[in-house]
Amino acid sequence: MVNIRRIGEEQRVRETSKDVAKGGAQQTPESNGMTVEDLSAFYGSFKAVTDVNMQIKRNKVTALIGPSGCGKSTYIRCLNRMHEVIPGAYAEGKVALDGQDIYAKGADPVNIRRRIGMVFQKPNPFSKSIYENVAWGAKINGYRGDMDELVERSLKQAALWDEVKDRLKESGYSLSGGQQQRLVIARTLAVEPEVILMDEPASALDPVSTQKIEDTMEDLKKKYTVVIVTHNMQQAARISDYTGFFYIENMGDPGRLWEFDETSKMFSNPDRKETEDYVTGRFG
């Protein structure tokens, strides 16, 4: 009995790792990345986003574009249950990470946010030293390994190490805006999440800083699944594999996912006219 069960388990493990190794095509959607089904987001009685269905592929960059106020930020905040932090805000529908619904009863938002990290529009370093900013998240999550090593590795991944290695004890606020944002990325990486959500991470930054952040994203997608909201069309085209276009047809309606496809198709030959108008800069 015991032996048979163990063999069965081993087989399952082997199959799973085979799936991962093959990547993409043959996997069931639920076991791969994030699956969003019929997601709607509310602020009290106001419905901000309605009925979003989306397949977010593992180890790919998914960009979310669209005019201001059409629910991109609200939507991305639903993907790690950050939306409900705002008083009166809630979401309906299903968001699954590797097949597990993060909105299921008993799902712990604290644990979910550890697995699905987030970088915000405005750099928000903690009022602590550079070192502590990176180490804090790992500390509260009970990291037992070599903290110095983790801090260094995370800062290197965020392309900030060379600029701060001699001043780790200084306040996070002594850095420039672009450095602060990379510090926040390093902080997010330090808790080793599976998915990283970025809500217009470069909108407040100069072109050089933006370039640095885009460069890091190229590395990030080797290890992480990335979802990024951006107003910068070239940025979306450059860095993403998939693009979702959010749009509101009539004033006062909730935002909808208007079109979602591979980035190359979205920017060259989208199915819907509004998408084409937007990506070619005819409005928005």
Partner: peptide, 15 residues
């Protein structure tokens, strides 16, 4: 204290 700081903490899996 700005809401952004609190959200930064929550986003790391803090209680």
């Amino acid at each position: 204290v700005p809401r952004g700081l609190r959200e930064g903490g929550y986003a790391l899996g803090a209680t």
